[in-house]
Nucleic acid binder design. Structure first.
Lengths: 341, 341
DNA sequence: CTGAAAGCGCTTACAG
DNA sequence: CTGAAAGCGCTTACAG
């Protein structure tokens, strides 16, 4: 006996292969009795549809790719869950590629995704260096949806947030609380657009409120808890303690709080700390973290929907959605006397 | 001009398609000059290898699948990162499927993975109900590697830990600290083998040390921070406060600590709390979390290596690796007078 | 060291 | 409502 493919099912059911395919995809087009014959044959033979063959035939896979630095960042978990929710009950699957903060790995990933003829790619994070590669991907017929930011390039599909504005507002909030010596601990703003926007928002808010930026209080690092700790220690080593710290991710903020405590400072009594992301742990840190809420789940869901849509039709314009963010006040920031440090 | 496939490259280089394929996969077999001709043609035409066609031809895809409940659980992030690390620089990619604690979704996922003719599947979490489906997957030629536990079925490939033992030892540790009224907040031990093993370890350790199990102090729930909070509240509502709480995941433990604090209890002064997993936040909670360290990254790495190996050869026996766990003492548990509550 | 040829299992117009 | 036929772009023995 040969393999159990559509041809085998067709023979067993006494119909043609085309009919089997029709029964599977557009059963309405087939007479009920014929349909029944086919279903029975499928059951009897234990036939398993071959998606690889189908994808190959259609010259495009039914897989969507996701590019992230690392899965180890709980805000991405929300995005992934949102994507999965949207892909649920569709023919699409999700391939995840970790670029590990490395531009070369990222390029390799993009190449792999092209070779796999993915139906679409969602970008959670890329370095600036690979913007062009992504544009090429798009031009090569693989729709590419960038999340987390609204790119400067208006032709790029984005489901993002306004990092500049969110950061500006959070900084303004700190200033309004009376803080003047404010530290900024962010990601690699030298290489990542979204992080740079946050930094710019921070700088502009300070400037607009007549607060001097002390560059000794600014650190760019990878966004893990441990890196947040180290960044804060570095600041404390060379500087007088700041009155507030704006950490550009919650993981960093948790690390910052930890190192401040270990250095003998209370949060928020001595130092106010705020984050960015609003991860699921944020309400449960000590003190609960004041942060910028980012709708990660929704971002993932919309990005997946967009990727699927773009893969199926070639309507003209770029999809650009800017989702709202908001400041969530919890307990990690407090008002101070502006003259105080 | 037609599509740029191997045939086109072959024509441009003045060789046959077989030779192009050889240059790409086993360049040693081709004369250097011929090789050069082919590389030039590839460059000139901008040829992109088509993995879908290759997978189709080989009747097996170069994709490995992962089944998890949700990405929203930071210990899984370690596993995913481990898998990705191992897949790096291989031809394999990772498809992730979320089963969302739902047996039907999980079955659907398994079906999809079969249809995609995946090269292998790594199981992070499944409900007991779908054990048979997984066995069928394996029999259908898709090697299936179960992580997080050593299955009772000895023919099943496992890269796991000894949940029973780890849980037994942690419970013993609590008893040794003098605790007698110990609560257990775990996952759905009615439906998940690994969770059940942890619960059994807990029960047996109590029994072996002559401590009575108070079933009012046992709750099974989904393992999120919020669920941990709710579970603890539920316990406090109907019972006198326990002296210690063993949460079978760190996320649960963080929720437990939060609800205890909100109810006016100090940790560990009034109640000791320990977790399971050792997520990256565990050292930075207040107090730092005493927990069972699980080598998630390594587990992912080994699982990926096993899946690849199993997909390539059909060596006989089952791969079964039990990784060691250890208790990490931080600040969330303290010794008490055994007579105390 | 290289080429010709078969075949992987579907989908998709097209014809009837 | 159904079938015959071409073709998607590779890989893999086999022959030379």
């Amino acid at each position: 006996m040969g393999r159990i493919d559509m041809h085998a099912v067709a023979s067993a059911a006494g119909v043609s292969q085309s009919t089997v395919s029709r029964v599977l995809h557009r059963p309405r087009l087939v007479r009920p009795e014929t349909r029944k014959l086919v279903y029975e044959a499928i059951e009897r033979l234990g036939y398993e549809y071959n998606s690889v063959a189908a994808d190959f035939n259609k010259q495009r896979s039914s897989i969507i790719g996701l590019i992230i630095f690392t899965a180890r960042s709980s805000i991405h978990a929300d995005v992934i869950d949102g994507i999965q929710e949207e892909l649920q009950n569709t023919k699409y699957s999700l391939i995840i590629g970790n670029s590990r903060y490395n531009a070369a790995t990222e390029r390799e990933l993009i190449r792999l995704f092209r070779q796999r003829r993915l139906s679409g790619v969602i970008v959670a994070e890329t370095t600036d260096e690979n913007r062009d590669e992504l544009r090429n991907l798009e031009r090569a017929g693989v729709p590419t949806v960038v999340t987390w930011e609204m790119t400067e390039d208006n032709n790029c599909h984005c489901i993002g947030i306004d990092n500049y504005k969110a950061s500006y507002e959070m900084t303004q909030y700190l200033v309004t609380l009376g803080h003047r010596r404010i530290a900024f601990i962010g990601g690699r703003y030298d290489r990542i657009e979204r992080v740079r926007h946050r930094y710019q928002g921070f700088c502009d808010a300070l400037r607009d409120h007549g607060v001097t930026l002390d560059t000794g209080l600014v650190v760019g690092t990878t966004p893990s808890v441990t890196d947040g700790r180290e960044a804060m220690y570095r600041i404390l080593e060379d500087n007088e303690v700041p009155s507030a710290v704006f950490a550009a991710s919650d993981a960093l903020a948790i690390g910052v709080i930890s190192s401040l405590k270990d250095s003998g400072y209370s949060v928020p009594e001595d130092v106010s700390v705020c984050g960015f992301d609003d991860i699921d742990m944020a309400p449960f840190t000590t003190p609960p973290l004041t942060t910028v809420h980012v709708p990660g789940y929704k971002m993932g869901k919309l990005a997946a929907a967009s990727a699927m849509r773009l893969g199926e039709s070639t309507d003209a314009g770029a999809i650009r959605v800017c989702l709202p963010t908001s400041i969530v006040e919890r307990g990690s920031c407090r008002a101070v006397n502006p003259s105080g440090g």
